[in-house]
Amino acid sequence: MLKRKLWLFSLVAILPVMAIFAYVRVYPIYEVLRLSLHKWDILSRNKPFIGLANFAELLRDSLFRTALINTSIIAFGVLFITVPLALVIAALIHHRTRSRFASFYETSVFIPHVVSLVPAAMAWKWIFDAQLGPLNALLGVFGVAPKAWLFDPVLSIVSVIILCSWQALGFAVLIYLVGFKNLPRSLFEASKLDGASGIQQFWYVAVPLLKPITLYVSVATLVSAFNVYAQVYVLASDAQGAPGRQVRVLVLDMLENTFRNYRVGYAASEAVVLLVIVLILTAIQFSLLREKGTR
């Protein structure tokens, strides 16, 4: 009797939250999947079902292909810079936990992750600026000729990778710090008795034990980098009549198809591709975790 009452209470109480959740999460996700199979151009009233035609068109769409390639390069670029660097920085910070400056280290690495994105991107836009930027000034000291960071097709992608890595690093360091704190001390004491040096301990004890953390950080970094948009938007927009080169990324292409070309169904199919990428990455993470038998 009481059990039944509690069951009823829980259902009534969770209903409003789940109604909101269904409306702002579940329904739009369902909609994006549905729309991707339809042709809908905002202006037209009817939305005919066209099966996988949108996806077939994506395969031939050179703009989409560029966006997919650029986004992948950015995501993996950020991954390869952020994760190894974060691992080393976290190891060093953890080693100096008792230092007076420990909270400074942690905070300074983390601040880029929390400050408003647009002002931070603007700081970098100035740094990369061909004429005024300190980056070219610095390179000039070493005799490197000034480069048009934001205009060159390759360098503009490099610029986005640098900016995104700068922002992503703090998150990765923080997660690694939690990982280091949870490592069993006994293993380190044992390896020390065996005469392992600090670097050997790092490489042969800490790194293998941190594999689940590395996997999680890698997937989280990749997923968020695949959604890159604001950074590209700010770096490319023109200040003082000097537009940077627009690096075409997936979210940008998607928004352009929706709001400039009014092709919502087509844009939805791009969103589905993004979703599939994220699902594959997550699946890889879980299968690797299971394989290792850790956690």
């Binding site: 702002v24 999460r25 739009p28 909609e31 959604n227 969103a271 979703l275 994220v278």
Partner: peptide
């Protein structure tokens, strides 16, 4: 319900942003 919450947690906001806009 919990399974639904977990499943949707993986989906990035950018994926369903456009339908949400029309809502």
């Amino acid at each position: 319900l919990f399974a639904i919450v977990l499943a949707t947690a993986i989906v990035p906001f950018e994926v369903y942003m456009i339908p949400l806009y029309f809502q």
